[in-house]
Design a protein around this nucleic acid. Sequence first.
DNA 1: CATCTGACATAAT
DNA 2: GATTATGCCAGAT
Length: 97
Amino acid sequence: MKPALREQILTILAEIPAGRVTTYGRIAAMTEGGTPRLVARALRDLPAGHDLPWFRVITASRRLADHGGADEQRQRLVAEGVIFDALGRVPAEHLWP
DNA sequence: CATCTGACATAAT
DNA sequence: GATTATGCCAGAT
């Protein structure tokens, strides 16, 4: 992974306001040469204990990505006021432009 | 070097 | 909506 790209991804991540979420694709589109998979990889490679809001990144279908920390992610988002409907999806109002 | 895999997206069905 | 198929790209094997 190119250091510059990861830096862009992390910078964008840090800009997401509390109570809002964004998708892998949107982050990828804001970077140069970024793809959703690279964004996913960048997050996966983050060391545990960092201070970035990794939990504010969801999939394009507005659901949580399938990974081990999904439960914690859901809890953190709910704690911030993000709402999940009966289908486990996040309403579009929470999306960060 | 050839394959497989996955914190994904998109289009078709 | 849910599933399936494809494209994508970096790591691991």
